[in-house]
């Protein structure tokens, strides 16, 4: 059976090992287009590992091994003929700590275009950079200082710059690894608003420690927990409202209601 056209990403029996240590196993997730899916769970339950396996960032970790399948529009990302570089162009990523390059704001956004072989004119590059910055709700704040260092921005602005940088190469999916954990509440609010806007065009998967955040922004929520071997497992997955109000699994309910984690 081929992947259903309704889902962008589907994992089948995903298992990820670091050396001999099994970080997560048996993960079956299907992520629908133009939704926000939140991965929640206590520290060390493998939710970041799952997220990073969706655009093959785990390839960069020595000793990491991925078994099972990750289907992107029905095609396995881990098939031998698939190049990780091509995967990451189509599935972008935003990291926990804002990590702009020590370059100008303009060059930060243009970076992804340049490395992917941008052939357009300077004017079209300008337009693309502007579109990405507008898409990340940052344009009005930086339009007069595009040549300044990206590091001179505030933390929240830096994170939106990183989102703009990811948007510039027009990915289909954006993975966000705890994008607000290093930000203050106001900057967090801005990013959350931005995510709601981005949802109209992009599919977003977000790892968060903040359950309220998952409740506020996510359409779907996946709850992970490690078992007695310390291997993470997907416990429950469903629409956010259902997970938060009527969890089927007792462990989900215990976590959501703040009894542990």
């Amino acid at each position: 059976m081929n992947g259903e056209p309704a889902c962008v990403i589907e994992t089948r029996n995903l298992q990820i090992n670091y050396g001999s240590f099994c970080a997560v196993k048996g993960v079956n997730l299907s992520i629908e287009p133009r939704t926000i899916t939140a991965l929640i769970g206590p520290s060390g339950c493998g939710k970041s590992t799952v997220l990073r396996s969706l655009n093959r960032m785990n390839d960069l970790v020595p000793g990491a091994r991925v078994d099972g399948e990750v289907l992107f529009y029905g095609a396995n990302l881990y098939a031998p003929e698939v190049d990780a570089v091509q995967v990451r162009r189509r599935i972008g990523m935003v990291f926990q700590k804002p990590n702009p390059f020590p370059k100008s704001i303009y060059e930060n956004v243009a970076y992804g275009l340049r490395i992917n072989g941008w052939r357009g004119t300077k004017a079209s590059l300008d337009a693309r950079v502007e579109a990405a910055l507008r898409g990340a709700a940052l344009w009005d704040e930086v339009k007069d200082k595009l040549q300044q260092s990206g590091l001179a921005l505030s933390g929240g602005q830096q994170q939106r710059l990183c989102i703009a940088r990811a948007l510039a190469v027009e990915p289909e999916v954006i993975l966000m690894d705890e994008p607000c954990s290093a930000l203050d509440p106001i900057a967090t609010l801005k990013i959350e608003q931005l995510m709601s806007e981005l949802r109209q065009h992009y599919t977003i998967v977000i790892v968060t420690h903040n359950m309220q955040q998952a409740g506020r922004v996510a359409d779907y929520t996946a709850f992970f927990l490690m078992d007695h071997d310390r291997a993470g497992q997907l416990i429950e997955y469903g629409p956010t409202s259902q997970i938060f109000s009527h969890p089927r699994d007792a462990r989900t309910e215990a976590y959501i209601s703040g009894r542990f984690g």
Partner: peptide, 27 residues
Amino acid sequence: VPSSLRQASFGLGATRWQTIWRVVLPS
């Protein structure tokens, strides 16, 4: 050089050498 910079570059679809040449070496 912070590994977060390398990750950022890889995450945008850069190859290892592009990451080295454009991000790691200048830093």
